[in-house]
Amino acid sequence: MRTLPFLVIAALILVGGLFLPQFVGNPYYFFAGYVVLQYVVIATGWNILGGYAGYINFGTSAFFGAGVYVAAFLIKAFGAPLPVQILAAGVVGMLLGVATGYLTLRIQGVYFSIATVALVVVLETLIHNIDYLGGASGMQTIAPPAPAWFGGQTQYVFCAMLVLAVVAVVAARFIERSWIGRSLRAIKASEPAAEACGVPTLSMKLVACAISGAIIAIAGAPYAYYASHVDPLSAFSLTIGLNALAMPLIGGTRSWIGPVIGALLLASVQQIATVTISSEFNILAVGIVLIAFVVLAPEGILGLIADLKEKLRRRGARP
């Protein structure tokens, strides 16, 4: 897609979404839409490190949970408004990404992945031990009321998440097409070759960790507002770690649109499915689909489409 049409479409979605509360009455749609958009942000953030640079983060829920708890803390301590919570969550997520990356990225990618698994346990342990944030049982987060224009809390967080999703996707697309994206893809293909081409691989990986960490944490920030109750179990939820990985892999990791497709598809199906089947079967199904894609279609839906196009082209070429 060309840049101008892309930006026009992004702006249309943004404006259309912001005016949606004026036309749609039923808050359930905003409730469900919020979750779908939240996953667009998470999957997009994950893909900057995982898809472009090839460093798999299993601990997405650590970053997400950090965002949730930063927001919860700000609500409790200062009654801070949502935009402040979001910015603070972004800064904390960035620092967390840099710190984890700095400690583990100088060695092989496997260690980074393993460290991210453990990171979830550690942050959860930390929250369990902070009484101010409610410890293991969690706490109420009574946020300041939403601006009247939005017509309700749910509509307000929906619109906030829509803004975040558009910003995240625009940022991801920009990174992908800039020198940063090129360097990250070079790192994914071969780190020694990237170094030999003058790419400061460690710094670039840290940049990717920082951006990715910030975006994922930002996705968690409005949760405190949305749910008006936070606890370690839902903030560091297994589902988030799984979906963050599954959505880009199913959609396709090479381009910004892959995670968007994956998130829209998977999150919508899950939203419909939670009404009908249990959440365990939900995770089980995602797990099996994930395995199937990793084994059979490692380039995701985008890869399948490209293969199909190639086949059609060949068939067309043969008279």
Partner: peptide
């Protein structure tokens, strides 16, 4: 290594290490 590369020491690898997922031109842009 990256700084040496910028100073003017270039190398090719024994086993070619192309940047896959990019076009030939993009490989040079890196």
């Amino acid at each position: 290594a990256f700084r040496r590369a910028r100073m003017g020491i270039a190398r090719s690898f024994q086993i070619p290490r192309p940047f896959t997922g990019m076009t030939v031109l993009e490989n040079l842009l890196v």
